[in-house]
Each structure stands twice: as C-alpha cells, then as structure tokens.
C-alpha cells in the first residue's frame, strides 16, 4: 500500500523479550489498580471529619489510577509526539472548561445570588 516499508519496526517492537517485559508491567499495574480500589473503598469507611480531605483523597487515588491506565495500558508514556500535542490541546481546553465554569459560578455577587 505504501512504499515506506522500512518504518515497520518503529511502531511496535515485536521482540519477544520486549513484549514479555511489557506483560510484566501490565500485570504489575493491574495489581496496583486493584489495591488502589480497595484503598479508596476502605478510606470511605473511615469517615474523615474534614469534607475536603475525604474528597481530596478519593480524587487523588482516582487520579493515580487513571494515570496508571493512561500511561501503561494506553502506553501514553512511550507515545509519539503528535499524540502528546493533541492531548496537550485537550488538557488545556479541559482545564479551561472546568476551571472557568466553576469560578464564574462561584463568583456571583451575593446580592444577586439566586442562581
């Protein structure tokens, strides 16, 4: 189809040792995800008095889990530059959406605060 056949090896390394190493990583990440899930649920049963702490910890654990999935299962950690560029754009707009909406929602002058 294309005459650029030389680039085959760039995409995936099919070397068995390489793949076996990856499989090990996958299994390790799998274990970490299971443990993190147990940790979130367990922390929930502890009931911290501080609301901020409860929410903060739950979201932190979720963020760690999510980045494990993204980095290793979606192999984002060893992706090509173009994918990083696309995801950098997305992150920028995602943060814009979340932050600006919430800020403008919270920063309502008290005398007009009927929402």
């Amino acid at each position: 189809m294309s005459n650029h056949s030389h680039s085959h090896a760039d995409a995936h390394s099919h070397a068995p040792e390489e793949v076996a190493k990856h499989v090990k990583t996958y299994l390790f990440v799998f274990g970490a995800l299971l443990v993190a899930t147990v940790v979130t649920v367990a922390l929930n049963y502890l009931h911290f008095d501080s609301k901020v702490l409860t929410i903060g910890i739950a979201l932190l654990v979720a963020a760690v889990k999510a980045s494990l999935v993204a980095c290793y299962f979606m192999h984002l950690i060893s992706e090509k530059k173009m994918i990083y560029v696309i995801m950098a754009f997305t992150t920028f707009f995602f943060i814009g959406l979340m932050a600006l909406t919430v800020i403008s929602y919270l920063e309502v002058p008290p005398e007009t605060a009927t929402r």
Binding site: F92, L97, L100, S104, E107
Partner: peptide, 24 residues
C-alpha cells in the same frame, strides 16, 4: 483557535456574573 475557548462568558454579562470573572 486557542483563545476562542476562553471567551465564551462574554455572552453572559447580564447573568449576574462577578466583576473579577467578567474582567477576565
């Protein structure tokens, strides 16, 4: 392309937005 994502609330000045965010 970039900036167009962070200007949207200028359609909403009359919704009782705070002054700081409206200045932004």
């Amino acid at each position: 392309g970039f900036i167009s994502f962070i200007v949207w609330a200028h359609h909403m000045y009359l919704t009782g937005m705070g002054t700081k965010i409206s200045a932004f």
